[in-house]
């Protein structure tokens, strides 16, 4: 949405930007809680799944109260947001955040000493810092390898120029470090929401868009999604419609790092390593192999991949 705004040269009012920030952080909290649960489920620790999703549920309810839907918020409009955070809702949100923070601290405390959990996560799926830099990995995956990249700080959007998050990095380079990055980022998000709600400025939530942007204007925005940075690029077209809209989801880059992460790993470690970068396979659906020597690009279809892997393992 902001890329269109950039293309049209509009800037949303301050209150709208604050509301966007709060929602983005709510989204991040729910995504990180969800991720921990899924990671627990992958290594068979269903109790983690159940408990972290239990803690996540109030966040979803809060999002539903603010926007009217649990996931598809439908909140952003060009030039602002659709719904205001109502005054009577704000006192309800603080206790929710408090209990969440308390419980999350307890969880962090409890799993910090869990040897069986560490046995599965520590030293698995190692992605050294230089390799991560070479492969352009983004998001919590790279922050677990001690590289402080966070587009909220690097290219502030929404109200992140005023509510500055602390970039959390861990030096472990393994799955455990990525768990810790996500868990600590949740605290950071809670802090940001609190500050945002306290300092919520008054004013309109929508600037009136007087004219449509002329065709051929470009706009690009980098957004730090919970999974990593997502890039939206828009070329405006005529007739209220974009001429081209390109999204680069973070999973594209993350997946490049997978082969080096799962080298010499057992089958049991592959799912959790893959899970540790929080992949979204809806965002990536084909394999493209570039031959470096001849600069030929070949897109493999599903059958071809299957045949190659079968040949390799002597089946079929």
């Amino acid at each position: 949405m902001e890329s269109v705004e950039e293309a049209a040269g509009i800037r949303a009012p301050r209150r709208a930007r604050y509301i966007r920030t709060i929602l983005l952080e709510l989204e991040r909290i729910h995504s990180h809680l969800l991720w921990l649960g899924i990671a627990g489920h992958i290594i068979g620790f269903d109790t983690v799944l159940m408990q972290s999703w239990r803690m996540r549920e109030p966040v979803m309810w809060a999002a539903e109260k603010i926007t009217g839907n649990r996931k598809t918020y439908g909140q952003n409009l060009i030039g602002g947001v659709r719904r205001d955070i109502e005054k009577e809702l704000i006192p309800e949100l603080f206790p929710m955040l408090d209990t969440l923070e308390q419980q999350w601290k307890k969880v962090l405390d409890a799993i910090a000493g869990d040897t069986t959990l560490k046995a599965r996560l520590e030293g698995v799926g190692i992605l050294p810092a230089d390799k991560a830099r070479d492969l352009c990995v983004v998001g919590p995956t790279v922050r677990g390898s001690d590289i402080p990249i966070d587009s909220r700080v690097d290219h502030p959007y929404a109200a992140y120029d005023e509510l500055v998050p602390r970039v959390i990095t861990f030096t472990g380079c393994d799955n455990w470090a990525r768990v810790l990055v996500r868990m600590h980022e949740t605290f950071e998000s809670i802090r940001l929401i609190r500050e945002g709600l306290k300092n919520l400025p008054d004013g309109p939530i929508l600037t009136q868009v007087e004219e449509t942007p002329p065709p051929g204007r470009e706009g690009m925005i980098v957004v730090e999604a919970p999974r990593g940075e997502a890039i939206h690029y828009v070329i405006t077209g005529s007739d209220y419609r974009p001429y081209r809209w390109r999204v680069r989801a973070p999973t594209y880059q993350q997946l490049q790092a997978l082969p080096s992460m799962i080298q010499h790993a057992t089958v049991a470690d592959v799912p959790i390593t893959l899970g540790s970068m929080d992949p979204c396979f809806s965002c990536t659906e084909r394999l493209e192999v570039i031959d470096v020597k001849t600069h030929k690009v070949k897109v493999y279809s599903n059958e071809e991949i299957l045949n190659i892997s079968r040949r390799k393992y002597g089946r079929g």
């Binding site: 069986t116 046995a119 599965r120 049991a268």
Partner: peptide
Amino acid sequence: ATNPRLRID
């Protein structure tokens, strides 16, 4: 209920 699955090794 309080343990993750171990690797085979």
